[in-house]
Design a protein around this nucleic acid. Structure first.
Lengths: 234, 234
DNA sequence: TAGTGGTCTAGACCACGGG
DNA sequence: CCGTGGTCTAGACCACTAT
């Protein structure tokens, strides 16, 4: 038996995650939810406080509660440029789409991401350039079942990562970070020496248990790092 | 004006962080705190629930609430062995202390960790061995002002990281992950080739704004990875 | 069995800030 | 101004579990 405040929490979480209540949407006031669920205000308040604590909603006196904007990537770690860590702002950023094609998921890839083979995926390769130097090579798969609107997107104006964050709320992400030696093709694209140490970030993102995207990002090891500040628990 | 449940939260947090209430210590029952603070049970409950949500205490019916054990490193990411990821248990672990000495913080090191030069630090180098292969080289500084009991510790029975977690609760940690090429000395200790790609994890830990320890851990890139599952916010 | 936390109620007063 | 969320009360019943 799940508690009532938990059920209210999950109901609202579901409406936000599914996009039924988009960012900025006003949530029913506490008093309205009291009536809807036939419970006291404390119970509603507990659920809404929990949602606010997780950053899913923003609560403002007199105005009401609103669905928060999609969270940016900093959840895990900030990605900072070793050479220019100081000047947080002022980066010249651009990107280049190297390739883009739609195919069906091979058995091998399906096993890796634990989805069913044959599903339609959009594969995109993208080079990220900061201050004139390539700083990341991105190889991405987007599951078209989960993100059908990606089918006709060229990613010319917005790179795949940012574009996806705007389109799809995510509920879970798994990250793996490894150190690898650059292969010939990667070395050439990143203008580094072959076998140079690189950071390889693999990220798989889900929405309600369904894979949205799977991406491998290779950074030159001498120019980039991952950094994050954490507090216990959470 | 800070709310009462917040004040209760902070009072207890302080007692835990300062070590006044060590791990395992029983916390006064809700009813006792009602009397102490002269408030209702709901107010106490709100504070204790928040502490439990942050993992600082564990609550058990009939038994009471207890200060949680210091959290293990998984806060950031699990460190898993690529080759033996499957067998979560069953690793043969051992460690070897390579060096141990007390010195005063040089100006350069002081600048790096943003502490005052001249402070006494214990420097320890430690090799971690899993299933017969070296898997990490740890170079650590422990601030003796913050952890005086480290002065006479040999770390023979427990490696510095685990020992510290048992001794000192931490309130903040900063991690940086880089990819680097192994230098000659590191390569020899880790039995890998020189210039092989390695993951370099740098971690600085604070307690109430004071640096407790600063550590650099080098992992062979082909054998290790960092992985973590995350949810939005946090 | 008895003490503890988990949940919930039906009120209340207040502070904030948008209209 | 006045609706909203923030906080708090003084109870209540129940589930769990150590003893």
């Amino acid at each position: 038996m799940t508690s009532l405040h938990q059920r209210i929490f999950e109901d609202i979480e579901q409406k936000i995650m599914s996009g039924t209540w988009p960012p900025g949407q006003r949530i029913p006031a506490e008093h309205e939810l009291e009536v809807t669920y036939g419970c006291s205000r404390m119970t509603v308040s507990k659920a809404l406080s929990a949602l606010a604590a997780r950053g899913m909603i923003v609560r403002r006196r007199r105005a009401g509660s609103f669905v928060a904007s999609p969270q940016i990537d900093r959840t895990v770690m900030d990605i900072s440029d070793i050479g220019t860590e100081a000047k947080v702002a002022g980066h010249a950023y651009s990107h280049r789409i190297l390739s883009r094609r739609i195919e069906r998921l091979s058995a091998v890839d399906a096993a890796v991401i634990e989805e069913t083979a044959g599903a339609e995926v959009l594969r995109v390769e993208c080079l990220h350039i900061v201050d004139g130097r390539p700083n990341a090579l991105e190889k991405r798969m987007i599951l078209l079942d989960a993100v059908p609107q990606a089918r006709d997107e060229t990613f010319e104006t917005s790179p795949p990562g940012s574009w996806l964050l705007d389109q799809v709320p995510w509920s879970e992400a798994k990250h793996i970070i490894r150190a690898v030696a650059a292969d010939a093709a990667t070395a050439k694209l990143l203008t580094i020496e072959r076998h140079a140490a690189c950071l390889l970030l693999t990220r798989q993102t889900w929405q309600n248990g369904r894979t949205v995207t799977f991406v491998e990002i290779t950074h030159p090891g001498d120019r980039y790092q991952f950094a994050g500040v954490f507090h216990p628990s959470k």
